[in-house]
Design a protein around this nucleic acid. Structure first.
Length: 438
RNA sequence: GGCCGGGUGGCAGAGUGGUUAUGCAGAGGACUGCAAAUCCUUGUAGGUCGGUUCAAUUCCGACCCCGGCCUCCA
């Protein structure tokens, strides 16, 4: 099954050819752990989880690295606000992130490196850049000198003049060029810092991904992923750093970017009341519904998240579960599903291909997409904090069965209505009455 | 201002130069004590204006809208 991917670097779809067919290597930018993941953070996690699952069906070995940014000024600010240590904040946030993503059936990456545990690698790369004349020291900072690299701007598709035309930021006086960016910056006593050849300081954001991807995947690997908003400047800067630190190397061959996410038709913002954390949504909707909704739109398309869409996704999963019944997932997913995924990860087409299937084939297709991993009993009858207990429901069903037996349908319907109001739906089948939580 | 996406039937969302996307919702029917679930049938499209073509939702151009990036946001 061939895989074609859209490569942001070339702006076209290309056949995916791994550097080493025995070992595919992929890096995706992970979260800055200062606050709970919102729905927009979840999209790349789910998209690249699916990509990695698919790659694993194609290649014998896949190494998936997703970093954790645990040194960042937003983290410093938040920790100060909450009057807790940076470590407490990052540990707590990371644990919650991992729980949330697990609820979306996103498997953990093979390596989840933390920035704070790779400072020496970042210092090392910064020294290499200085040694090659791509960086300079100014007022305690180490800066990457953008004009030193002719190809800068290739990923974002913009040249130097365009960037200058758009410059809206005040340029720090120590920068030789407005586009230069920080590799290392000084920390005062109140900020996290590490000893370095340039004094006590902390790394810039971009150097983190260059250093950690090299540590675990080597100087050249296959796929680098993230949200489209990271393409510039973050990914552009990563390329600049990595290719300059080791001249002649290619860094990532394929760049894949997921599209932006809107919420209820607008950019998600706390002030608009359309800001959803994954954690919030998981209180009201199953994680698999969120996963399905995110995969219902092609990853490069903009997606308009709505809670209504989430409800529809959940009902779709209800139906599939009934159709699958007790069928085990067959060994191989349906060819149409694999074909769609091979076509630049066309998950909406893969989902469409599932309709009309049944039994083991459908089950296998859904499992390929990372759906239906939650056991059926838990899905339909899982514990509820507000509804009646399983035992109370069984008692009511027995009472209703007795009423129906004496053809007292008024009493029977009354019981059914009461349960419905409590969020429990009854279905009479030839094998007896079954129930599920709404 | 520069750059990059997108505009498809009531909604969600794909492919495609000519032939059904798919799903949801709606309508009709079957089943049911009534429901629920399931099954069957079914209507409705491709921003605007031009161009190319025997034929365009699909290619080209212009324009209009929406969104993003250009500021350490996925």
């Amino acid at each position: 099954m061939p895989l074609t991917v859209y490569n942001t670097l070339t702006r076209r779809r290309e056949p995916f050819v791994p550097r080493d067919p025995e070992h595919v290597r992929i890096y995706v930018c992970g979260p800055t752990v200062y606050d709970d993941a919102h729905i927009g953070n979840a999209r790349p996690v789910v998209v690249f989880d699916l990509l990695v699952r698919f790659l694993r069906t194609l290649y014998p070995r896949v190494t998936y690295v997703r970093n954790i940014t645990d040194v960042d000024d937003k983290i410093n600010d938040r920790a100060a606000e909450e009057k807790i240590t940076i470590r407490e904040l990052t540990e707590r946030t990371l644990a919650r992130f991992q729980e949330d993503m697990a609820a979306l059936n996103a498997r953990p990456p093979d390596v989840e490196p933390r920035a704070t545990e790779h400072i020496s690698q970042m210092i090392g790369m910064t020294e290499e850049l200085l040694g090659h004349g791509h960086a300079y020291v100014a007022e305690g900072h180490v800066l990457f000198h953008v004009p030193s690299l002719a190809q800068y701007g290739r990923l974002a598709g913009r040249d130097r003049e365009e960037q200058l035309a758009g410059a809206r930021v005040e340029v720090e006086s120590y920068k030789r060029d407005p586009a230069d960016f920080v590799l290392w910056k000084p920390s005062d006593a109140n900020l996290p810092g590490w000893e370095s050849p340039w004094g006590r300081g902390r790394p810039g954001w971009h150097i983190e991904c260059s250093a950690m991807s090299r540590e675990y995947l080597g100087s050249e690997f296959d796929i680098h992923g993230g949200g489209i908003d990271l393409a510039f400047p973050h990914h552009e800067n990563e390329i600049a750093q990595s290719c300059s630190a080791e001249p002649g190397t290619e860094f990532a061959r394929y760049w894949m970017h997921n599209g932006y996410l809107l919420s209820e038709g607008e950019k998600m913002a706390k002030s608009l009341g359309n800001f959803y954390t994954v954690r919030d949504l998981l209180c009201r909707h199953p994680g698999e519904a969120l996963r399905l909704l995110l995969l219902s739109t092609h990853y490069r398309q903009p997606i308009d998240f709505t809670e209504d869409g989430l409800r529809r996704a959940r009902r779709q999963l209800d139906r599939w579960r009934r159709t699958v019944a007790g069928a085990p997932p067959a060994g191989t997913p349906p060819p149409a599903v694999l074909e769609a995924l091979g076509d630049d990860l066309n998950s909406p087409r893969a989902i469409a291909a599932l309709h009309g299937l049944g039994g083991a084939e459908l089950h296998a297709g859904l499992r390929m997409l990372g759906l239906l991993e939650v056991p059926h009993d838990e899905w339909f009858q899982g514990a509820s904090e507000t509804g009646p207990s399983d035992r109370a429901i069984d008692e009511q069903i027995a009472a209703r069965a007795a009423a129906r037996a004496r053809r007292d349908f008024t009493a029977a319907d009354s019981i059914r209505t009461q349960l419905a109001e409590a969020g429990v739906i009854l279905e009479d089948t030839p094998a007896g009455t079954i129930w599920r939580r709404k």
